[in-house]
Design a protein around this nucleic acid. Sequence first.
RNA 1: GGGCAGGUGGUCGAGUGGUUAAUGGCACCAGACUGUAAAUCUGGCCGCGAGAGCGUACGAUGGUUCGAAUCCAUCUCUGCCCA
Length: 375
Amino acid sequence: MNAITYELLHIDKNSGARRGVIHTPHGDIQTPIFMPVGTQATVKAMTPEELKEEVKAQIILANTYHLFLRPGHNLVKEAGGLHKFMNWDRPILTDSGGFQVFSLGALRKIKEEGVEFRSHLDGSKKFISPEIAMEIEEALGADIIMAFDECCPYPSTYEYTKKSMERTTRWAARCKEAHKTVDKQGLFGIIQGGFFEDLREQSAKDLIAMDFPGYAIGGISVGEPKEEFLKMLKFTTPLMPDNKPRYLMGVGTPDYLIEAALAGIDMCDCVLPTRIARHGTAMTSHGKIVVRNATYERDFSPLDEECDCYTCKNYTKAYIRHLINTKEILGVRLLSIHNLRFLTKLMERVRIEIENDNLLNFRDEFYKNYGYTKE
RNA sequence: GGGCAGGUGGUCGAGUGGUUAAUGGCACCAGACUGUAAAUCUGGCCGCGAGAGCGUACGAUGGUUCGAAUCCAUCUCUGCCCA
């Protein structure tokens, strides 16, 4: 019996967007969904209570590579698993470390067997193979676990991308083979293939043959132009099974989230809202604003008049700017709450618009208000 | 009244005759950030100018010198010590 199942509720008649529910051991997830990232078993600056009450997050991410290094997966297991360790009782998804193959590019060596990392913390050698990734992810105990893959940089040559994608496929098979906790954790395969349609097609075909309970698109949103992003998104999503969750990895700007939903994606995650919060920027319904800028010195209005979050209900731009500029932790916290809530609320709206077969119109309206030009 | 030390761009502080409109830090002003090596990184920061450039600048004034923030004189201000 699969730990993860997908239930389709409605398809937007005017787009491919789908409204559904993902059933997990820690509860249901209404989709499409935005998932906050909590790499080191914490969504930076947020308590689990805030994530539930203020952000209204349904599921969060954590990271295999980072938790493997510190505090170590065995310690987390000893603590009773990630849920108990971090006091979060809703669903969790762990990324496999495949993104670190990309982001720590200078510090790792890829072999067929796996990836040898030089720890970004102390330079020591840390080896992760598909089997080790599974061992770590099973010890962490997330509801959804990702197969160990390689996220290719942009741009990459056809030859490299093909080689990498084929290796990722072999790794996926090894992950599936090594994965023992099938009834407790759903293992998702990750479609790679860079920006080459035939490679995406091949990757999708081979992974689907392995019958994972869910599928992700990896390796896009890695610095390519939006046009390229949309092209691959629209090409790859229809290749994915329609009776299983579809997860677009690493997507986080409001326009990308809407485009993803339009294409038929169910899940997205991104560090962007929390990162730019720490750097003094807020997403609002009228575009992003750098609150730390002098323009807001005497702006005694909320970040976003249309937002219902704790921050917007209680604090002004001028105050948040003051907190950010004086490097007070509260500034980071207030902006993080707001940015995360902005995206979860956006997705709540997206779900309603899908039910009303109106997501395309909403996209146009949103773009206009946000200040996005076109696609 | 006497002695000593010192006054540098928003600020702290380098620089002790020539690539010096003047090192750095901080503050300030902007930009970037998309499965987190990120509470980080990048750029700007005397005035005018798109730019080459021009004009003002190292307490004040005068001097030495081809050339001074840097040397000399006087004045002035600050700190410490003595009376």
